[in-house]
Every structure is written in structure tokens, then in C-alpha cells.
Deep mutational scan, measured.
Amino acid sequence: MPVRRGHVAPQNTFLDTIIRKFEGQSRKFIIANARVENCAVIYCNDGFCELCGYSRAEVMQRPCTCDFLHGPRTQRRAAAQIAQALLGAEERKVEIAFYRKDGSCFLCLVDVVPVKNEDGAVIMFILNFEVVMEKDMVGSPAHDTNHRGPPTSWLAPGRAKTFRLKLPALLALTARESSVRSGGAGGAGAPGAVVVDVDLTPAAPSSESLALDEVTAMDNHVAGLGPAEERRALVGPGSPPRSAPGQLPSPRAHSLNPDASGSSCSLARTRSRESCASVRRASSADDIEAMRAGVLPPPPRHASTGAMHPLRSGLLNSTSDSDLVRYRTISKIPQITLNFVDLKGDPFLASPTSDREIIAPKIKERTHNVTEKVTQVLSLGADVLPEYKLQAPRIHRWTILHYSPFKAVWDWLILLLVIYTAVFTPYSAAFLLKETEEGPPATECGYACQPLAVVDLIVDIMFIVDILINFRTTYVNANEEVVSHPGRIAVHYFKGWFLIDMVAAIPFDLLI
């Protein structure tokens, strides 16, 4: 008679799926529990143990900040960024110097990925580790590398530091407007667009060049630039800015003055950032001319202004700041037409079709709590990747769950009947059967004279019903998954307890 339990259901295979997918890609990662103190490590794979030199037993239950890997060259700011990422709910990448158990130093890129439950609360953290440099290539500990984003994938490793954006290309926007319009339909740009040429040739750093990471940081200074100062900065030398009595002219307006920039070969870094931020506020060169004239017309309804409409929906549905990093990277690809469009465009503009998908598509409701890094690593669709929660398995109709209350009560009843059979069957065979043979035949009273025979008949009927119930009862397979398919249940029961239950259900007393 089957006594099969499996009270692990309803099970959740999400954690096993993450481990299996990460292991298949030869990654070095740990999984931490966000619900406990210090976000203790609950799993670390073999790749991480080989990377740091510690065994799994030495890593388990330690804080996922990996303070046991810190050393003299470990930056405090990087460690603080990892700790801050564990307090938030967004994906974050941090470069930090770690030390192995043998004392060797290596520069590592740590990717902190939160995993949320159905309520939107962070319950786990996945920390992925990628070695960037070994100890002989690690720089000085005073050099802070965590304020910069990861290198873009479309640049060669040897040319990542030679990417320079020439400031004269930004200063000569109005001069290039006529050349853009003359391109017409034969050019790649839309009317009114501004073409910015980027020099990728390796050259020595000069005062006129600005690194790509500095251009990325310009967006942080746009908020500090007032509207009046932006307007004066875009007017140009024809209309000098008016300053109040006793007030000095704005240095932001002076930063885009061609006369002032041409007199000296070098520009201050602050002026460069502010000038680029001011130019980015204009949607095209037409807006710059309109600002000089004193009238700013409404933005025209053409394809170039609607190019950012799908980007707005993608940004609203993005799951991490990696989408913004990807957008900034692609927006700086050289030799393309940049349409400086305000994100607050007309909502009635139709979304044009684009061959290049900048932001990841909208994630469906079932995966809105899973970050983009987890979705990318697992390579699963929205119909396959579940949320991290207890999910009731989908069972067929008329199927009994093996952990249901009805099955528990039924098993206790069958257990009592088995005990009765084990006690009274030998007793009936030894004593009652002998008395029946010696006594007179009682054929007239039937079952009324033999109450134990009636009980034995009921017990046999219950055993037959138990066999039928076992054909529709779920079970737990070797992978700790609840199986509810009727065919698989029948095959599993035939290979197991079916023969024993059938022999126990045969009414031998009635056959004798």
C-alpha cells in the first residue's frame, strides 16, 4: 500500500533555474538572501570558489559584500557603492579590487542584480563577478574607477581610450546646418538635424578633445543650467548677453562664444560640459537660429522629431539603469545623424518603425519583477520565466494532490484497515475457520451469522477504491517536481505499489 509523501509542494524551481543557467555559462556568482541580516550568502558556485580561493563552506553565510576579499588596494568608495546597491532595488555595476585567499590582487567587475517577489519586494541578490585585470595590471588604489561605466561593446579594446569628441564640431553647429540641408533625401539625416562627426583615429590627448566618459557625465550638469543662461549661451556672438549692473557675465554663455574659444586653444572642462549641455537642449539648428531671432517656433511634425517616441515608452518600462547606459552608448555611435529632440514631445505622434532597438522591449506582467540581467542570462521568455513566489501546480481535472487534506485522511483510514487485516486475518484463519468446520452448517442466516465476513468484505472494497484513487494521485519525481499527468501517474504506480495493492485487495476469504 503506498505511503508516498512529498510535502515540499507547491515547489518553486526558480532558484534552481537560475543556478542551472548560470552554471551553463561558466559564470562566477553568488546568491544572497536579502531578508536576513547583512544579506548572507546562501549559494556560491564553483567558479566563484576558484576565483577567490575560498571553499564553499568558508563563503556560505558570510555577508555578500565580500568584505573578506578586501585588501589594501580595495577602494572604500567601491565598497560603499556595493553596500548601497544592496540597500536599493536597481541593478548596478561596480569595479573593485579584490584579494584572493593567497593574497593576489585582481580588479573585478561586480554586477549586483536584485530579484523581487510578486509584491515588488527584493528577496534575493545575485552578484556576478568578472575579472577585468590581474594584480600586475591593477593601478594605484588612489585612482577611482567606479565613477565610470563599463566599456562599450562596439569599441575595440585597444581603442576604448582613444575615443574623442571634438569640441569644434559642437561649436560649428550653425555652420554645418547648410551642408545638412543640402544633403536632402540623399543624406542619412532628416531636415533640421545636426550631424556630429566623431574622430576615432588614435591621437595624443589634446586640450581640444573630450573623453567619452566626460560626455556621459554632461547629463548630470544640465539641471544646474538655468533657462535664461541656456538661451544666452545659444544666442551666440551676435547678441551678447546682458548683465545687470554690478553683475558679471555668465561664464556659461561665454563658453560657447566662437570668438572667445578661437582665441585660446584650450577650454576648461567645466565650460566644455556646460556648452555641450546647452546645445543638447535645442532640438535642431533651426531652433538655434530661432533663439537668435527671439522667436522659438513649435517643433515640426516630421520623422526626426518622432524618433524618440518609442524611446520614451522603453525608458518607462525599463527595469534597470543598464538600459540608460545602453541608450547613452548607442546615442554616441560615430558617423550617424543625431536628432536633438526633447523627450517631452507630442504624445499624438505616431511611433516610426526603427531597425535598431535601443531599449529592451516591454516586459510582460509575469516578468515585471525580474531584472534585465536575470532575463538576459536565463534566456527565457515571458511565458517560461515565473515570478519568485509559491505557485500552485497546474493539475488535470479529477486529480488528487498527494499533500491535500483528503489524501491525508484517506491514508490514515487505509492504515487502520491494514492494521485490522494484519490482526484479524490470522485470527480468523486459526480459530474461526476451525469452529466453522466443526459446527453445523448455517446457510440460512447468511452474513448475519458471520459479522467478521462483512467487515472483511468492506475492507476489500476499500482497498479496491484505494487502488483507483492512487491512479489519480500526484507524486514527486526525482527532481522534486509534482507530477499531475494521468499517464505518468499510471506508469509510476504500475512500477511501484500496484502489484502489492492488488494482492492485498483480493478477497481470499470469499474465494475459499
Rank of each mutant, 00 (worst) to 15 (best):
I126T: 09
V110A: 01
A190Q: 15
A79M: 06
V384H: 04
A303H: 04
V132H: 06
R271H: 15
A142K: 09
L109C: 05
E91T: 07
V341G: 15
I18K: 01
A193T: 05
A185W: 03
D67T: 07
I82G: 01
A277E: 12
M137C: 05
F22H: 13
V8Q: 15
G236Q: 01
V196I: 06
E118A: 11
W154S: 14
V8H: 13
D46L: 05
A277D: 06
D259I: 06
K364Y: 03
L225S: 01
E37Q: 07
C105W: 15
T216Y: 08
S275E: 12
K344T: 07
D46I: 03
G224E: 15
D102P: 01
G306P: 14
P386I: 01
L212P: 12
T162M: 15
S283K: 03
V195Y: 05
A83I: 07
S207Q: 15
M124R: 03
G24D: 13
D67R: 05
S379Q: 06
D16N: 14
Q84G: 09
T145N: 15
C108K: 01
K28A: 13
E365F: 09
S351Y: 04
I18T: 06
S255L: 14
N257D: 14
L256V: 14
A156Y: 06
L165E: 13
A253L: 14
N220I: 07
G187Q: 15
R280P: 09
F106I: 05
M124C: 05
T337D: 01
P249Q: 09
L349N: 14
K135C: 09
F29N: 01
C265P: 13
T353A: 14
E95K: 12
P227A: 05
N117M: 15
F348C: 08
L15H: 04
G47K: 08
A293R: 10
I336R: 14
H7K: 06
S322P: 14
D102E: 07
G306H: 14
L380A: 03
P151V: 13
P299W: 05
R281L: 07
G236V: 15
V112G: 01
P310A: 07
D46P: 06
P114N: 04
C39D: 04
T375D: 03
I336W: 15
F340T: 14
P205K: 04
S255P: 10
A268Y: 12
R77L: 13
V279Y: 13
H302R: 09
E289N: 04
P258C: 10
E50T: 13
S320Q: 11
K344W: 06
T216K: 07
F14W: 14
A360Q: 09
Y327Q: 12
L86I: 15
L267I: 02
E90P: 03
R326D: 13
E118S: 08
P334T: 01
Q25D: 06
N257H: 03
S320H: 06
K28W: 01
G149S: 07
S313W: 01
G236C: 04
L324E: 13
A78S: 15
N38T: 06
K116I: 13
N33F: 01
T329K: 06
G120T: 06
A253K: 15
S318F: 09
R5A: 09
A244Y: 09
A228S: 06
P297R: 12
A89Q: 10
L171T: 15
R181L: 08
P141W: 06
P150F: 06
E134W: 05
S304A: 12
E130R: 06
R366T: 14
A34V: 08
A285Y: 13
K93G: 09
A57Y: 07
G226I: 15
R164I: 12
K332H: 10
C66M: 15
G71L: 01
H254G: 08
A9K: 14
S266A: 05
G238T: 03
F348H: 15
C39R: 14
M60W: 01
A203F: 06
G187E: 15
I288H: 05
Y43A: 01
A203N: 15
L155M: 06
A97I: 06
T74F: 01
L173N: 12
K332F: 01
P151C: 11
P202V: 01
L155R: 12
D342F: 01
R159Y: 11
G53W: 01
P202N: 12
A217Q: 14
I333H: 14
L170W: 10
D355L: 10
A156P: 11
S255Y: 05
A57F: 08
S255C: 05
Q75E: 15
V112D: 01
R252Y: 04
D342H: 05
